[in-house]
């Protein structure tokens, strides 16, 4: 029961609700608009004559007989072979998440269970590494990678992304493992397990919520990366984001902006699905650091 003092005056209620609506439009409208426009021809998407053309698709209808066309998608996926970039992206993301979770869980677990002072310093170093913009490291990679013929291939990029991911993964999993009572694995050790057996049989079964949340953020980092992937991958191995950037260079000159629009929508769709299914984990992951820190 809300007391009279807690009841919100109507004016404020309307203002607050209006504000939420405005924010929702700001946040969602650009995506809806671009999604809708990606099924149009360029003259409708960028309309000089009348902005409502983008809604009705007047020129699209004149060209294709229907107000919607998949021409942009066909151009991007088939003609420009965007599907290659999509496959590369999923290879990179899959292996980055798998590797960084495997080694990150071991490291994070060790950091949370060792009481020695050096764990603090390792975490501090990880924090410093976390703050390092990835692009500043790229200049250091290029020379050795060229020398040893490692440049341009997917495995190199995967390892680099795993390493860049580690500081964040360690911090998240460290604080997560600290919330799992020490008594669990201590008692397993009393029963004669080694540290690894205790980890394998006692901790692994209960660690999945934290690991899934951390994995989501690893995925996002690998998926969204532009600096490393654009610098370390050869043209045929490009992932989606550098491929879109490369599209921009060619499409503006050739007048195929709709290819880039279709590619952008294609790259956004998986993230949409991800947020839909894992909204709770993403929110809890974002706040975990804040509430602790």
């Amino acid at each position: 029961m809300a007391s009279k003092a807690q009841r919100t005056p109507t004016g404020l209620k309307i203002a607050a609700n209006l504000f939420v609506v405005v924010w929702l439009i700001l946040a969602a409208f650009p995506f809806l608009w671009t999604f809708w426009g990606s099924f149009k021809v360029e003259l409708d998407f960028f309309s000089i004559a009348d902005w409502t053309n983008a809604l009705t698709g007047k020129n699209t209808e004149a060209t294709y007989g229907r107000p919607f066309t998949g021409a942009g998608y066909h151009g991007a996926w088939v003609q420009e072979e965007f599907w290659r970039a999509v496959i590369n992206t999923f290879i990179v993301c899959f292996f980055v998440v798998l590797t960084s979770l495997t080694i990150g869980t071991l490291g994070g677990y060790a950091l949370s269970r060792s009481g020695f002072r050096y764990t603090f310093w390792l975490l501090i170093i990880a924090l410093i590494f976390r703050a390092m913009p990835p692009i500043t490291l790229v200049a250091g990679y290029l020379l050795p990678f060229f020398e040893w013929n490692l440049w341009g291939i997917l495995p190199t990029t995967i390892i680099v992304l795993v390493a860049i991911n580690q500081p964040f993964t360690l911090w998240m999993l460290h604080s997560f493992f600290q919330n799992i009572p020490k008594e669990l694995d201590e008692s397993a050790k009393v029963d004669g397990c080694t540290q690894f057996q205790a980890f394998r049989h006692v901790i692994v079964p209960v660690m999945w919520p934290g690991v899934i949340t951390t994995g989501l953020f690893s995925f996002l980092l690998a998926y969204n990366d532009f600096a490393v992937t654009s610098m370390l991958l050869s043209e045929s191995n490009r992932t989606m984001v550098p491929e879109i950037a490369a599209f921009l260079g060619t499409t503006y000159t050739e007048g195929n902006v709709m290819f880039a629009v279709a590619a952008v929508v294609s790259a956004t769709a998986p993230l949409f699905v991800l947020v839909m299914f894992f909204q709770r984990q993403i929110v809890s992951g974002l706040t975990a650091g804040a509430v602790k820190g």
């Binding site: 080694i103 990880a126 490291l137 200049a139 250091g140 390892i159 390493a163 580690q166």
Partner: peptide, 26 residues
């Protein structure tokens, strides 16, 4: 210390080779 070392080795190595070394190289 020994157990900690083996648990931490993979992640430590990754960060040493691909973050610390590149900084030195840069």
């Amino acid at each position: 210390h020994r157990t900690f070392f083996w648990f931490f080795l993979p992640t430590g190595l990754a960060m040493l080779l691909f973050i610390a070394a590149p900084i030195v190289s840069v």
